[in-house]
């Protein structure tokens, strides 16, 4: 059986000038987005660490600001974990896909 009948479809999708570069840019964009998000969460965690050090030294103006920063860091980390769970789930779904 010849696959020539559907080969043209593959060609169309490969050669489509609108789809090809856009998909490539989006792929780069996604990894950039993940890296940026990771960096933001890391910055938040680091700043909470600084806050906690200040608290330990006794150099804190108001306690509630420290607690709020802690909560913000925790929430951004939770968001990161949820995103990671979704991505990993999708990856595993794809890997388990029977061909």
């Amino acid at each position: 059986m010849s696959i020539d009948s559907i080969a043209s479809i593959a060609n169309v999708s490969m050669m489509d000038p609108a789809l090809g570069p856009a998909a490539a840019a989006q792929q780069g964009g996604f990894s950039q987005m993940v890296a940026k998000g990771l960096d933001e969460v890391n910055q938040k965690l680091l700043s909470t660490q600084t806050d906690l050090q200040k608290l330990a030294v006794g150099d804190v103006q108001n306690l509630h600001q420290v607690m709020i920063n802690l909560e913000e860091a925790r929430m951004s980390f939770q968001l990161l974990m949820q995103v990671r769970n979704r991505v990993l789930e999708a990856y595993q779904d794809v890997m388990k896909m029977s061909v």
Partner: peptide, 15 residues
């Protein structure tokens, strides 16, 4: 996240 606005409001009240 948008919730930081809510936190800022409550923080002002606490201050």
């Amino acid at each position: 996240m948008d919730y930081t606005h809510t936190f800022a409001i409550s923080a002002a009240g606490m201050s």
